[in-house]
């Protein structure tokens, strides 16, 4: 794969992130292009979450070079947050609001229309009674989908997802994978951490393995 900073959505060169002095990311080098689907693998503490947080503009770069969507992370990392969507272990939903209200709230903030809200809700399978159920009453998979729907309504160009498959049943996982494929088909770049083993080789995304804060394996 051609590697260059110009065309890539994520561009890391020996990137070090060291919150509280510990280099959780200890010199990672990586390029991800637009529309790619990338799975990050590795043991606990390998630096997967830190890599996502760095790319989301949430963790400061201590050393090396890093740019996301053309924005240099060593400079103003606040800028990058606007076009990047990060969903961690928490979904960032308001439990008292329904799925539709949660999405509609974000839609108001970014200036999206009601029709767009309905389209997104449809696209993420949040239809009928589901859309009008309070987020606190939704299942884990439905909440995760609502969180992703809010990334979609924000038109985030890069999705950074920390273990999106965790605590989901088989159906929900497949639904999630379908959402990923549709998103990447429309030009969105999706990077997620996972413990999944892919058996079906045709469906396997590009898989990057981290160990001790470095990229040790990159299987396209």
């Amino acid at each position: 794969m051609p590697v260059g900073s110009s065309g890539s959505v994520i561009h890391l060169r020996d990137a070090v992130v060291a919150p509280a002095g510990f280099p959780a990311l200890a010199g990672a080098t990586l390029d991800v292009g637009a529309g790619e689907l990338v799975a990050l693998r590795g043991a606990n503490g390998a630096g997967k979450t830190t890599l996502l947080r760095l790319c989301a503009g949430l963790a400061p770069l201590a050393r090396g070079a890093a740019s996301v969507l053309g924005v240099d992370l060593a400079g103003n990392r606040a800028t990058v947050r606007r076009s990047v969507g990060f969903v961690g272990h928490r979904n960032g939903l308001y439990g008292e609001l329904t799925a539709r209200e949660n999405i509609a709230f974000v839609a108001t903030l970014v200036g999206a229309t009601h029709d767009e809200v309905e389209v997104v809700l449809d696209g993420f399978g949040l239809v009928g009674r589901l859309a009008d159920t309070r987020a606190s009453a939704l299942s884990a998979g439905q909440r995760r989908r609502t969180a992703l729907a809010s990334l979609a309504i924000r038109r985030a160009r890069l999705w950074l997802l920390d273990e999106p498959h965790a605590a989901l049943d088989v159906d929900s996982r497949q639904q999630l994978d379908r959402v990923f494929r549709e998103a990447t088909a429309s030009g969105v770049t999706v990077v997620y951490t996972t413990h999944e083993r892919y058996t079906d080789s045709q469906r396997m995304p590009r898989t990057i393995t981290l160990d001790a804060g470095r990229v040790v394996h990159d299987h396209a």
């Binding site: 969507g85 961690g88 960032g92």
Partner: peptide, 10 residues
């Protein structure tokens, strides 16, 4: 549920 991060970081 981490909504503030969503609100402010984006």
């Amino acid at each position: 549920d981490g909504a503030l991060d969503m609100l402010l970081t984006s």
